[in-house]
Design a protein around this nucleic acid. Structure first.
Lengths: 206, 206
DNA sequence: TTTAAATATGATCATTTGTTTACCTATATT
DNA sequence: AATATAGGTAAACAAATGATCATATTTAAA
């Protein structure tokens, strides 16, 4: 869909990108013309129209400094999320207690692209056999439901835990991955059980 | 140095930030006035001057859409690194074979702040007891030396491995963390042994 | 060579945008 | 009560900016 560009058109596009990075806002047509040593604005204006038609540029008519690059390489902003690191999950859901925030961390949105996620520091050894260790940080995606076998963050009687989730005949099984620990069974419709989120990733710092 | 703001001033600042994030370029004074339901531009204009004097805003006189937020929280650019994901480490060090790149991932520079780092996908179970599993991604910091107990990426006879490193009397011990595997011993000064880097972190995607 | 497209000029026009002045209204402080 | 400050209105002005027309010049394709 994105057409080929002449070298000149590419230069203009690069100049816009450069200016934006340098100043925090896009250039005017006259500023662009000056950069290329041109005495008229008409040439640049025409080129911007071409660039827009070719799909490389977003340009709002009659708006000053409204140029926006359509750059498949510069997905930086879209690929980064800043997530809060929570020391522990508290009661009072579904609102998360952000006061308990340990800090923030930037992560690739491949993990946090959907909905609102957060990071949770693991306490305990209940998932040690799944390679989840004490002190690890989990990438948790908020969710109310999940599927069999998912590793979830659940709140049971105001106590937050990491477990693998299984739905059985008339009850739910929260399976620790630790040979020394027993599964927890929860009646369906037990009021004090809530799924907080799905474990999507794990971060560990050595 | 940065003065306190009234709630209204804070709202204006937030609106500018929001607009910038939304559109890629800053708003005009009239657009701001409209956002706040004001019929005149003078009020906003006055407020922008105040915000600039207080050090929260960069504002070029007589330039359209030139507002720039001075935001101590926006250290984004400094806290993010884009690291290549390598499928495996090859011979021919110390240059890494970037042709084998699987892709790139953004990570917090808390892990990759120093020197050049890269990401390496783990193959095998040699470190399973350390919670490092097949398919995990390691954050590797390039290094030629390391200390006892460090988890390292080493190249032995053109074979790359993840092991825990110990220096013994007259040899080096590469200790797998897997009860079924035996340590590897390497003579000091063995020519075909090279330390590639230090494992600083671990990323896993569920 | 001929033709078409891309690039550029110079001038002009219309609109957008920032700036300013003179007021008005609260609210809090002296 | 008097005063200062933040916030707001209305109107007008000046500068910045985008759009456009007619016309060259160069470059690439037919």
């Amino acid at each position: 869909m994105i057409h080929e560009l002449t070298t000149k058109q590419q230069q203009v596009l690069d100049a816009i990108r450069e200016f934006q990075a340098q100043n925090g806002y896009p250039p005017t047509i006259r500023e662009l013309a000056e950069m290329f040593g041109q005495s008229s604005t008409a040439g640049i204006h025409k080129m911007l129209t071409i660039l827009r038609d070719k799909g490389h540029l977003i340009k709002d008519d009659r708006k000053s400094r409204s140029l926006g690059i359509v750059d498949p390489h510069d997905l930086t902003a879209d690929r980064i999320r800043s997530l809060p690191i929570l020391g522990h999950v508290q009661a009072g859901m579904p609102q998360l207690a952000y006061e308990e925030k340990e800090g923030d961390m930037f992560i690739d949105s491949e993990w946090a692209g959907h909905s609102d996620s957060f990071l949770l520091r693991v306490r305990g050894l209940s998932m040690i056999d799944a390679g989840i260790r004490d002190g690890d940080i989990l990438v948790v995606q908020r969710a109310e439901s999940c599927r069999n076998g998912d590793i979830i963050i659940a709140l049971l009687d105001d106590e937050a835990t990491v477990k693998r989730f299984y739905k059985e005949h008339d009850r739910l099984r929260l399976q620790p991955e630790n040979q020394t620990m027993q599964p927890i069974y929860v009646e369906r419709d037990y009021p004090n059980f809530h799924i907080i989120g799905l474990v999507r990733g794990l971060l560990r710092k050595f």
